[in-house]
Deep mutational scan, measured.
Amino acid sequence: SSEEQMCGTHRETKKIFCEVDRSLLCLLCSSSQEHRYHRHRPIEWAA
């Protein structure tokens, strides 16, 4: 659903897949302290 594609923290669309956590992130989350050094892919890659 579209609600699942929205970041609850930043209200941004989740467009990035974190390979380490195997989760979807928004651009702001992907550059956060928690995920900054993880490997990321565009969401299309994970589909």
Results as ranks from 00 to 15, higher is better:
Glu34Gly: 05
Ser32Ala: 09
Ile16Gly: 04
Leu24Ile: 03
Glu44Gln: 05
Ser32Ile: 00
Phe17Met: 11
Thr9Glu: 12
Gln33Phe: 09
Ser31Glu: 10
His40Leu: 04
Leu25Trp: 00
Glu19Lys: 03
Glu34Val: 05
Phe17Val: 07
Trp45Phe: 14
His35Cys: 03
Glu44Ser: 11
Ser30Val: 08
Gln33Glu: 14
Ser2Ile: 12
Glu4Arg: 08
Gln33Asp: 08
Gln5Arg: 11
Leu25Cys: 09
Leu27Gly: 14
Leu28Asn: 13
Ser1Leu: 10
Glu12Arg: 13
Lys14Gln: 07
Glu12His: 09
Leu27Lys: 14
Trp45Ala: 15
Cys7Trp: 05
Val20Thr: 11
Ser23Ala: 12
Pro42Phe: 08
Arg11His: 14
Ser31Trp: 13
Ser2Glu: 09
Glu3Asp: 14
Cys26Lys: 00
Arg36Gln: 09
Ile16Trp: 08
Met6Gln: 08
His35Lys: 00
Lys15His: 01
Lys14Ile: 04
Lys15Arg: 06
Gly8Met: 14
Cys18Met: 02
Ser2Trp: 02
Tyr37Glu: 14
Met6Ile: 01
Ala46Tyr: 09
Lys15Phe: 07
Arg11Lys: 13
Ile16Ser: 05
Glu12Cys: 12
Ile16Cys: 06
Ile16Thr: 06
Ile16Glu: 05
Leu28Val: 15
His40Asn: 00
Phe17Cys: 01
Ala47Cys: 03
Arg39Thr: 13
Leu25Ile: 12
Ile43Gly: 09
Glu19Pro: 12
Leu24Met: 14
Glu19Asn: 05
Cys29Lys: 01
His10Asn: 01
Arg22Lys: 15
Arg41Cys: 03
Pro42Ala: 13
Ile43Val: 13
Ser30Pro: 03
Asp21Ser: 12
Phe17Asn: 02
Ser23Gln: 10
Ile43Ala: 15
Leu25Gly: 03
Glu19Asp: 07
Thr9Ile: 11
Ser31Ile: 11
Met6Val: 09
Glu3His: 08
Arg39Leu: 10
Leu25Ser: 06
Cys18Asn: 08
Glu19Phe: 00
Val20Trp: 10
Ile43Lys: 15
Ser32Gly: 12
Gln5Cys: 03
Leu24Gln: 10
His35Arg: 01
Pro42Arg: 09
Cys26Ile: 00
Cys7Met: 02
Ser2Phe: 15
Asp21Lys: 13
Gln33Ser: 10
Arg36Thr: 13
His40Asp: 11
Met6Asp: 01
Thr13Met: 15
Leu27Ala: 14
Trp45Asp: 15
Ser2Thr: 10
Glu19Gln: 06
Tyr37Arg: 11
Thr13Val: 12
Gln5Ser: 14
Trp45Val: 15
His38Lys: 03
Glu4Val: 11
Cys18Asp: 02
Glu34Asn: 06
Cys26His: 00
Asp21Ala: 08
Lys15Ser: 10
Ser32His: 05
Leu28His: 08
Arg41His: 05
Ala46Gly: 13
Ser32Thr: 08
Leu27His: 15
Arg39Phe: 07
His40Glu: 05
Trp45Arg: 14
Lys14Val: 07
Arg11Leu: 06
Cys7Gly: 05
Ser32Gln: 10
Ser30Leu: 06
Cys18Ala: 00
Arg36Ile: 09
Ile43Leu: 06
Tyr37Gly: 14
Ala46Gln: 11
Ser30Phe: 01
Ser1Tyr: 08
Gly8Thr: 12
Glu19Val: 03
His38Asn: 01
Cys26Tyr: 00
Ser1Phe: 15
Phe17His: 03
Glu19Tyr: 02
Ile43His: 04
Gly8His: 05
Cys26Ser: 01
Ser23Gly: 07
Glu19Ile: 04
His40Lys: 00
Glu44Ile: 06
Ser23Met: 11
Leu24His: 07
Ala46Ser: 13
Glu19Leu: 03
Asp21His: 08
Glu4Ile: 10
His40Met: 03
Thr9Arg: 11
His40Val: 05
Glu34Cys: 04
Lys15Asn: 15
His40Ser: 07
Thr9Phe: 05
Leu24Tyr: 11
Ala46Cys: 11
Ile16Asn: 02
Arg39His: 10
Ala46Phe: 09
Cys26Val: 00
Ser32Lys: 05
Gln33Pro: 15
Glu44Arg: 04
Phe17Thr: 05
Ala47Thr: 14
Ile43Arg: 06
Glu12Phe: 12
Arg11Val: 04
Cys18Thr: 05
Lys15Gly: 08
Gln5Asn: 07
Arg39Val: 11
Ser30Ile: 05
His35Ser: 03
Cys18Pro: 01
Glu44Met: 05
Lys14Gly: 04
Glu3Ser: 10
His10Thr: 01
Trp45Met: 15
Thr13Ala: 14
Gln33Ala: 10
His35Pro: 02
Ser2Val: 08
His10Lys: 02
Arg22Ala: 08
Phe17Ile: 05
Cys7Glu: 00
Glu3Val: 07
His35Ile: 01
His35Gln: 00
Phe17Asp: 02
Arg39Lys: 11
Pro42Gln: 11
Ser23Leu: 10
His38Tyr: 02
Arg11Thr: 10
Ile16Pro: 04
Ser32Trp: 05
His38Gln: 04
His40Trp: 03
Glu44Asp: 11
Val20Asn: 12
Glu4Pro: 09
Tyr37Asp: 14
Glu34Tyr: 06
Arg39Met: 10
Thr13Asp: 06
Arg11Ala: 10
Lys15Gln: 08
Ser32Phe: 05
Leu25Pro: 00
Glu34Arg: 04
Ala47Pro: 13
Glu12Gly: 12
Cys29Gly: 02
Cys29Asp: 04
Thr9Lys: 15
Thr13Trp: 05
Arg41Trp: 06
Leu27Ile: 11
Ala47Asn: 12
Ser30Asp: 08
Leu25Glu: 03
Val20Leu: 06
Val20Pro: 07
Arg41Asp: 15
Ser30His: 04
Arg22Val: 04
Glu34His: 12
Lys14Asp: 07
Phe17Glu: 05
Arg39Ile: 14
Leu24Cys: 09
His38Arg: 03
Leu25His: 11
Ala46Trp: 10
Cys18Phe: 01
Ala47Asp: 15
Gln5Ala: 06
Ser32Leu: 07
Glu44Cys: 04
Ile43Asn: 14
Thr13Glu: 12
Pro42Ser: 10
Glu4Lys: 04
Thr9Gly: 04
Glu12Ser: 11
Ile16Arg: 05
Asp21Pro: 00
Ala46Arg: 08
Gly8Glu: 13
Cys29Thr: 01
Lys15Tyr: 10
Leu28Gln: 15
Glu4Asp: 12
Glu3Lys: 07
Asp21Gln: 14
Arg39Gly: 08
Ser31Pro: 04
Ser1Ile: 07
Ser31Gly: 12
Glu3Tyr: 03
Ser31Leu: 05
Glu3Ala: 13
His10Ala: 03
His40Phe: 02
Gln33Asn: 11
Ile16Met: 11
Leu28Cys: 06
Arg11Met: 05
Arg39Pro: 08
Cys7Phe: 00
Leu24Phe: 11
Phe17Tyr: 09
Met6Phe: 01
